[in-house]
Design a protein around this nucleic acid. Structure first.
Length: 170
DNA sequence: ACAAAGATCCGT
DNA sequence: CGGATCTTTGTA
């Protein structure tokens, strides 16, 4: 079942732990529905978080993060890779969760490539789920909390354990 | 207007 | 470790 508003409109710290192991669903170029288990996420939360794009305030780019949870935030990094984020929290609380990896796909750039993301996904509604959505899962495995990747410039904010990674079960 | 940096990945 | 490659943002 598709996750609804209630799931996303909570604090990013709660949603991030809860989103692991759910299924990221999308339609491929032939219209076939694909899905993969979410295994690796990172939290970007609030204007005070120096690693969060919203630390610059509300801009054309960060606008969607200020909206109510359940929307897609995508942006191009290094001129090449589209990063997939889900907006969380209530309106006025800039938050997003970066999908760093799904089963068999290790790395946010690869996730974006797999889903063939582009600018048109900015602000896409995950609750409506026309092109992309998330479905719930039953099993809840354990996860580890790690520092976020690639945000050393953010000083003490880089030390927060805001990367949640599913522990692989053999 | 222009320059700089960036939530990455790949090949050497 | 450097190159690819382009949007966003700060500075003039």
């Amino acid at each position: 079942m598709k996750l609804g508003h209630g799931f996303y409109e909570r604090d990013a710290l709660i949603v991030a732990a809860d989103i692991l192991e759910n299924k990221l669903c999308w339609k491929d170029e032939s219209g076939m529905v694909q899905n993969k288990v979410i295994t690796d996420v990172e939290i970007y939360r609030g204007e005070e978080d120096k690693a969060c794009h919203a630390c610059k305030g509300k801009t054309k780019r960060t606008n969607v993060m200020y909206m109510s949870g359940g929307l897609v935030y995508v942006y191009l990094i290094y001129g090449m890779y589209w990063m997939l984020n889900t907006v969380t929290g209530r309106e006025g609380e800039p938050q997003a969760i970066l999908i760093r990896g799904v089963e068999g796909v290790d790395g946010p750039g690869k996730v974006g490539k797999l889903l063939k993301l582009d600018k048109s996904f900015y602000g896409e509604d995950l609750v409506k789920g026309e092109r992309i959505w998330i479905e719930d899962a039953v099993r809840k495995g354990d996860y580890e909390e790690l520092p976020r990747v690639g945000v050393d410039y953010a000083g003490e904010w880089a030390e927060r354990l805001w990367r949640f990674n599913l522990i692989k079960v053999k």
